Amino acid sequence: MARKQSNRRKNKQYEAAKKNLGKPFFESKEIAIYQGDTLELSSKLPANAIDALITDPPYCSGAAGCAVMADPSKKYCQSGKTLGRPSFGGDFRDQRSFKYWCSLWISQAFNACKDSAYCLVFIDWRQLATMIDAIQAGGFCYKGLISWDKGGSARAPHKGYFRHQCEFIPWGTKGIVPRLTDRGPFAGSYSIGVKQTDKHHMTGKPTPLMQKLVQCVPSGGLAFDPFCGSGTTLVASVLEGRYAIGFEASEQYCEIAARRIEAAQRGELLKFQKQ
């Protein structure tokens, strides 16, 4: 896969963010990963730096407050089989604490965003209304809803259900929606199936989907993912010629993301290998 040519002019906002954040866990060309808690790291981001917040946080759907030590594999993997994908934390909050927590990290990202920057956050049907509230509580103007159709292989508890086939991306902007001349308008719905060879995280999103979403960032602009997981937002940024910074608490996932970024910069997509 050929990588799109990026704007080779140095992104001053990217450099300013790195200066504030310190030494990254991994950096290669225009992409940096920092390991740690997003609330701690986001507080160090400079103002007026980010062109778009694009992220896929833990959904905490159906979580009970007493389930702090629950293993996400039991919810996200059929029969609890991870196929070698590492587990992850933060998926235990009840709905009220989830909204409060999201409002905190979204507001920190808002403070680091440029005027008219985009905010795109993945969520499922259970927490959709909660996330829409949190985006607005964090400071962004809610502008609409993007749907992602995962395809007919999406699971249903039994034959009486309509399949939980779609996930959602409520989006907004910091102030007015920018009038663009170099890109857009962007699709409001995407039908992109999940390929197991492209899924490096239990809840990983398809690389082609993330490539579409990062196109809201100007060429050579800066995307930010405070829950970068296996690094798909960052890989998409490589392929689309954008700068990107990602935060991730798990060292295992930081390492996976680094390998995927290096492959993307060679013009390859690293394939997931079942274990």
Rank of each mutant, 00 (worst) to 15 (best):
K4D: 08
Q5T: 13
S6N: 01
N7C: 05
R9L: 12
N11R: 11
N11D: 08
K12N: 08
K12G: 11
K19M: 10
G22H: 12
S28P: 00
S28T: 13
I33E: 02
L41E: 12
I54H: 02
P57V: 03
P57N: 04
P58N: 00
S61G: 14
A67S: 15
S73I: 07
G84D: 03
F88L: 11
R93K: 15
Q95A: 12
K99R: 14
Y100W: 11
S103E: 07
L104G: 07
L104T: 06
S107C: 06
A112K: 00
K114C: 08
A129P: 10
T130A: 10
A134E: 06
G139E: 03
G139D: 03
S147K: 03
A154K: 00
H158C: 13
G160C: 05
R163H: 11
I169D: 13
P170W: 11
W171T: 10
W171I: 07
G172T: 05
K174P: 13
G175A: 04
R183F: 04
Y190Q: 13
T197C: 02
A223V: 12
S230N: 11
S230W: 09
V235T: 12
V238N: 11
E248L: 01
I256W: 01
A257T: 13
A258F: 02
I261H: 01
